[in-house]
């Protein structure tokens, strides 16, 4: 099947070369980091996880979000999604690979990564995250590959795939739940210490993942002769709307608990993120952009006319992706470290 990937017009090859150049740039930067150490990243003993881990967290969401097309098709027999489940599965594969690479580049001693397997430690959530992410990757590779090659041959996929598909659905929930547990079980990090972390992660995942899928569908329709279908995009739009409303609802629940209880530790990070703390406010403009995009997305998604029109839906999807990316890919992980255990503010910027 791979030979199909080696055929294409000039635009296709140009795009591949462009992507290869970016990957080459990344690899060169990584070699530099491998020699110099993580000191080139701007992280510190106070903000000890930065951009890498937050991107990993965001992309786990994208990977899990793919399940929002798989679930309706296989569980609710929503036939229309049959055409695009494959997109969801391959989006998950790409996202999980990026997740694993982001963890890898974040390690101070990447050559020792096998220690996680050589000294298995079930009490570490990172151990479980390694397991669920890798199995999710294998599940999607096996399912995606078999379903796609069956479709190409015009036959039904082999029946042994079916149980794997059913397994992949709860598994998608598990990868984001376990990733939330990385944060939600740490004493002394008040911003993360919340039972709603996993649901919040899932809500933002099920908004951002399908939003990216919608954009992907629109692009695929433009550049190829495969049409994912109008009906499909419309249904996906509904899913994004529900999930994004839930995501904002969960965020506001956090704000309520923090500020109504008035417990200082619970409010500090929110204050830092949205207003600045002790004169430090590097992330404040970003967080307000996130809020602004969230409002735009909410309006466009809630009003039926704009949700059903593909142009405005596309704008809404871009707004959802930007809003959740800033919220999770910057604010959540970095914000959790600020203020530090001594209630001092040490800022971070990659």
């Amino acid at each position: 099947m791979l030979e199909r990937a080696l055929e294409g017009n000039k635009g296709y090859w140009g795009w591949l070369i462009f992507l290869l150049l970016i990957m080459g740039g990344g690899a060169a930067c990584y070699l530099y980091q491998f020699n110099e150490g993580l000191r080139i990243t701007g992280m510190s003993r106070d903000v000890s996880w930065g951009f890498y881990i937050s991107q990993f967290t965001y992309l786990v969401g994208i990977a899990a979000g793919g399940v929002m097309v798989v679930l309706p098709y296989y569980i609710h027999d929503h036939k229309a999604f049959g055409k695009i489940t494959i997109l969801g599965e391959f989006l998950a594969i790409a996202a999980v690979i990026m997740c694993l690479l982001f963890i890898f580049v974040d390690l101070g001693n990447p050559v020792r990564i096998m220690n996680v397997i050589m000294y298995p430690t079930p009490n570490s959530i990172l151990f479980w995250d390694m397991i669920v992410l890798n199995i999710y990757l294998v599940l999607n590779l096996v399912i995606g590959w078999n379903v796609l090659s069956a479709e190409r041959k015009g036959v039904h996929y082999p029946s042994w795939i079916k149980p794997l598909i059913y397994l992949s659905i709860p598994w998608a929930f598990s990868i984001h739940t376990v990733t939330a547990f990385l944060y939600a079980g740490l004493p002394g990090r008040h911003f993360w210490l919340t039972a709603i972390m996993a649901p919040r992660f899932l809500a933002s995942a099920f908004a951002a993942g399908p939003a990216l899928l919608i954009l992907l569908c629109l692009i695929v329709r433009k550049v190829s002769n495969f049409d994912p279908g109008k009906e499909q995009i419309k249904t996906l739009g509904g899913i994004v709307a529900y999930a994004f409303i839930l995501n904002i609802f969960f965020l506001l629940l956090e704000v309520f608990t923090a500020f109504y209880s008035g417990i200082p530790g619970h409010t500090h990070t929110f204050i830092y993120l949205f207003a600045g703390l002790d004169g430090f406010n590097k992330l404040t403009p970003w967080m307000w952009f996130s809020a602004l995009f969230a409002v735009i997305a909410l309006i466009l998604l809630i009003v039926p006319a704009t949700r059903r029109k593909e142009d405005t839906l596309a704008v809404a999807c871009v707004a959802v992706i930007l809003s959740t990316w800033i919220d999770k890919g910057l604010g959540l992980v970095i914000g959790g470290f600020i203020p530090n255990p001594f209630e001092r503010v040490v800022e971070y910027w990659p």
């Binding site: 110099e36 000890s48 963890i103 974040d106 255990p341």
Partner: peptide, 24 residues
């Protein structure tokens, strides 16, 4: 000799007691 440098312990320590060798 065994540490892979994931820094999970630094996130978990509520006392900021741990340091990381960002460079050599």
């Amino acid at each position: 000799h065994r540490c892979i440098g994931c820094r999970f312990c630094m996130a978990a320590c509520p006392f900021g007691a741990r340091s990381f060798n960002w460079g050599d």
